[in-house]
Amino acid sequence: MNDHKAFIEYLQIEKNASPYTVEYYQQDLKEFFSFLHQEGIQSLGDVDQQCVRLFLTTLYDHQLSRRSVSRKISSLRTFFRFLEREKLVETNPFMLVTLPKSPKPIPGFLYMEELEKLFEVNNVNDPLGQRNQALLETLYGTGMRVSECQNLKLRDVDFTIGTMLVRGKGNKERYVPFGSFAEKSLKTYIHDGRDQLLEKTGIHTDVIFLNSRGNPLTTRGIRTILKTMMEKAALTVNVHPHKLRHTFATHMLNEGADLRTVQELLGHENLSSTQIYTHVTKDHLRNIYLNSHPRAKSRD
């Protein structure tokens, strides 16, 4: 069963899958091949509906979440679709597998009062404080993913028109605007604090966000910085990069932005990915209704 190597190349070259996605596919395939070995199935062409049902049973016996099971089934469905295309199997036994849809969790977000506390904790006269402020303003001001922020280069930021070139999943590019707060903090950091951090290393880099040693920040480093800011602000909620992305989308919708616009800004391929943010705006919509509709509430 060495066909998975060709499949991984297909993911990397044709599908432009991220390293994280490829890693998940490899984990799922390894687990499935282990199952086939235990069942004495030596050929992928021998995998049938009964085999798939037995595999599903083993996944549930391991008490995996519905989300984890769905991901594994999706990975294997894609794998067998590739095998079909390459005429290595006749049918895709995972095509007919259906799992009950589980309710999507409502994404957490920060209220403006909580955000204001975060914006006040950094010492903007210090190189790391300038970096942290610029990092916070960029994540909240654009809604980009942490990996996109980590890879942001100096040449990607155009201050003349206030936009950033963001490289998202599958190397897809999109332009995202940013406002005056992000502009101010970025300019301060780039022309002051960043230069001081660069002096600590002889290596030149175009990456915007650097660590205390002058090297490019990692995604883990960005999460650690946000956690430190959260502790300084004495917030009781957990703050991580994706929560800032959720907050960006929620606040945009609350202030009247349409779904299509938010979809484009977030870099979502499907509108359904953006629609999860409409759930967290229902209270806002109800308040507007109660305060605006002539017969929404009693006048006595």
Rank of each mutant, 00 (worst) to 15 (best):
K243Q: 13
I222H: 09
F119P: 06
V47A: 06
F109G: 12
L128P: 05
Q275Y: 09
V52E: 00
H279F: 00
K169N: 07
F33I: 10
K87F: 13
R286K: 15
M95F: 05
V166H: 03
F109K: 12
V239G: 07
K200P: 04
K72Y: 05
M1P: 07
I276M: 08
V157R: 08
N123W: 01
T58N: 01
M112C: 05
R131I: 02
S212F: 05
V239I: 13
S212I: 05
L76W: 00
T274A: 02
K15M: 08
I288E: 04
F80G: 03
L139C: 06
T98E: 14
L115R: 14
R66I: 10
H284P: 02
M95K: 13
L83R: 03
R131G: 00
T247H: 10
Q49D: 11
Y175P: 00
R53L: 11
E173P: 04
P177R: 08
R194D: 09
R131Y: 02
T250Q: 11
F119Q: 11
K87G: 06
I225F: 02
C149R: 06
R245S: 10
L186R: 05
L186N: 09
Y111A: 13
D195H: 14
K297I: 01
R174H: 06
H37L: 06
D300K: 09
H293C: 09
Y60C: 00
L136H: 03
Q27R: 15
Q42C: 11
E183Y: 00
K30L: 03
L198T: 09
H268K: 09
L54T: 13
L253R: 10
V176F: 03
D158F: 05
V262R: 04
I203G: 00
L96D: 12
I190S: 04
D28C: 11
T163Y: 05
L210F: 03
T247D: 11
L197H: 01
A233K: 09
T142R: 04
V121T: 10
H279Q: 15
D46V: 09
L64E: 09
Y60E: 06
N171Y: 08
L152Y: 01
N215F: 03
L115Y: 07
R53P: 01
E183M: 13
D195S: 14
F178H: 12
